Amino acid sequence: MSRQLINRSEDLQRLASEGFAIRIEAGHLLVEEIPFLDENGCIRHGVFACPLDATDEATLPPRDHVMSFSGGMPHDRHGKPLAALGLTSPRCSVIGSLVFQHGFSNKLRGPRGPRSYESFYEKVITYGDIIIGEVQAIDPSATARVGALPTSDTENDPFVYPDSASARAGTVELASKFKDEIVAFIGLGGTGGYILDHVAKTPVCETRLIDGDRLYPFNTFRAPGAPHKSELQPPPYKVDYYAHRYGLIKRNIIPHAVNLTPETFYLLDRTTFAFVSIDPCPEKAAIMAELERRALPFVDSGMGLHKGSNGIGGTLRAVLSTEANRDRVRPHIPVDPGGRDPIYENNIQISDLNSLNANMAVQLWKSFRGFYADFGEPVWLYQVETRQFIREAA
């Protein structure tokens, strides 16, 4: 992806053709081998980084004027910190093995006042000229145009286009907690579809979709997005539809148009987490047992609804099961088909509740992996009638 994006983007291609050592990682443009002077007038080398605004086709004009820097504080030829850079806090702290200690805030000025950078080429050149100009006062041969284009780790980026949202928010280090995750989706009904919508925006390295059902028009009214009617003729398997839909943003989404049974338990091989979004049934008990046998952490989600004189009521449920709490949470995961809800099974259109239930499940997962601070219980309920969340002790 990074090489393709560089080749398709005029500003990045220009940087590369002029010899700048650029690469793309974690939604950032990195420019290496930037010479600068330390406080003693010695020449050292650092790395620029800034969030990369781009589509899968090409870069967009930078919306951010801040540049982060790794390698030390640049100084002028007199040994003073280079004030012309406009010192500020770095927007990113860690990308891979690079630690960014400094941030620069240099705003361009036009005839009518401050203006934005028109391209990443202009942004890199502007900051580079400020720093390298001082270096060349000591060594006229100093340059950042080293004629190198290193291979980027993001040739196998899990995203089709850069995750500039994490880059902008400074959460790249937290998001990296998911980079080795292989997630299994057991069931892609209304709630499972919304869980996928959220997980597809994280850098998990592989997503396995396991569901043997087809997507019919009535399913779409409690699922994320809006398929064109031609996509439902004939009705596709849910896993194929979702793999295509979310394949527009995410790589390595693998569909399996089967139900999870002892004959297909091999689909769980090498997985690191599972989302279970299926109704209580005899097969669910076997699935729970297999997940526990594999020591696989998972979140089970579901809802129990009823229709009364005042409208629909009931409870949403999300339960995090790990090796540390199996015995405590197991009673909170229904497997008895006698508890099935006829209101839900008749395809009542409650996409808002499906979405909310998915949010609960995903937050439990993210908290378990350390993305969110976690002081809550592994069993989380929501009461529809009172609109209250309940963190029930397991």
Rank of each mutant, 00 (worst) to 15 (best):
R3T: 15
R3N: 15
L5Y: 10
N7Q: 13
S9N: 11
E10T: 00
Q13R: 15
S17K: 15
I24D: 03
A26H: 14
L30P: 07
L37W: 04
E39Q: 13
R44I: 11
L52N: 02
D53I: 10
P61A: 08
P62N: 09
R63G: 14
R63A: 12
R63M: 10
V66H: 10
V66E: 11
M67A: 00
S68F: 07
S68K: 11
F69P: 13
G71R: 08
G71Y: 06
M73C: 13
P74G: 07
D76E: 04
K80N: 11
P81I: 01
L85E: 09
T88R: 13
V94Q: 11
S97A: 14
Q101T: 15
R109D: 13
Y117N: 08
S119I: 09
Y121N: 11
V124S: 06
T126G: 09
I130A: 00
V135P: 10
Q136D: 10
A137M: 15
I138V: 14
D139G: 12
P140T: 07
T143N: 10
G147H: 07
A148L: 15
L149F: 13
A165P: 00
T171P: 00
K177F: 04
F178L: 12
K179G: 00
A184E: 02
G190Y: 02
T191Y: 01
G193R: 02
I195K: 02
L196F: 02
V204H: 06
E206V: 06
R208C: 05
L209Q: 04
I210E: 02
P217T: 06
R222K: 03
R222G: 00
K238T: 03
A243F: 02
A243W: 03
K250R: 12
I254S: 10
V258G: 09
N259S: 15
T261W: 12
P262V: 03
T264N: 13
F265I: 12
Y266E: 11
L267E: 08
R270P: 08
R270F: 13
T271D: 06
A274T: 05
F275D: 05
F275M: 05
V276S: 05
C281Y: 15
E283K: 14
E283L: 13
K284R: 15
A285P: 07
A286M: 15
E292K: 14
R293L: 11
A295E: 14
V299R: 03
G302L: 04
M303Y: 04
L305W: 04
G308V: 01
G311E: 01
G313W: 04
G314N: 00
T315K: 11
T315L: 09
R317I: 04
V319M: 04
N325G: 05
R326V: 12
D327C: 14
D327H: 15
R330Q: 05
P331Y: 00
P331G: 03
H332Y: 10
E345A: 13
N346G: 14
N346P: 12
N347K: 09
Q349G: 01
S351W: 03
L353R: 04
N354H: 05
N354V: 01
S355D: 12
N357F: 01
M360P: 01
V362C: 01
V362R: 02
Q363V: 06
S367F: 00
F368S: 03
G376P: 08
V379P: 05
Y382P: 08
Q388I: 08
A394W: 01
A394I: 00
